[in-house]
Design a protein around this nucleic acid. Sequence first.
DNA 1: TCATTTCGTAAGACATGACTTACCGTAAGT
DNA 2: ACTTACGGTAAGTCATGTCTTACGAAATGA
Lengths: 110, 110
Amino acid sequence: MSYEMTLTALADPTRRHLLERLRDGPLAVSALARDLPISRPAVSQHLKVLSDAGLLLVEPAGTRRLYRLAPEGLDDLRAWLDRLWGDALDSFAARAHDIAREIARKETPQ
Amino acid sequence: MSYEMTLTALADPTRRHLLERLRDGPLAVSALARDLPISRPAVSQHLKVLSDAGLLLVEPAGTRRLYRLAPEGLDDLRAWLDRLWGDALDSFAARAHDIAREIARKETPQ
DNA sequence: TCATTTCGTAAGACATGACTTACCGTAAGT
DNA sequence: ACTTACGGTAAGTCATGTCTTACGAAATGA
């Protein structure tokens, strides 16, 4: 949902591995846990974090639960990144040296 | 540098706050620490993480060190996000229900 | 030269989060 | 009804990371 939760979810290597495996289509929990060095409950916990962050969707299929990437899962994060690294950044980069010299002469900021 | 380090750096609320403050231009360490509820050394440690991840550039100015956003700091992360949430995702989203029904009938995967 | 300011690093305390095993509920097959 | 397979949750352990204080190095000004 929020970009904060998205970043928290993406910060873990195991969770990134899960996302990359789901890149090729939906998978059940046991299938995801099969080639990981951790227990199945641990995978379930990671899947919960990813789902709560809006990155995954679940679809029950019999006794199994199929997880897949949520198409709009990255929207909030992308919006935040775009806002942070916006156009103003480029102009500042161009003026960086001038600004630094001003500051060195104590004209700006603390 | 790597998108892994970028994600680790962006996962912390304090570091995100630092980035947002630097959105408006370069600042020194003490200035950044002034309106944060943590000590100045803690800020220095966060700035090191951000710099190591390629998100910040440093420019010495007298006894001070001016930190600013690195214009290309998000490039690797953006590339990884684009690859993960690629076009194939949409087609899978469209076929999700069909796939789920196949799986429920045990035709696909574990 | 001496004092002051700014900042990085080291060492240790503490909180957070990623694991484990144990357990329970649900769906499907016999 | 009984068994098996699948998966979520709880409780506790352990590692990782985020703080703190203490200290030292470098630049500035008197």
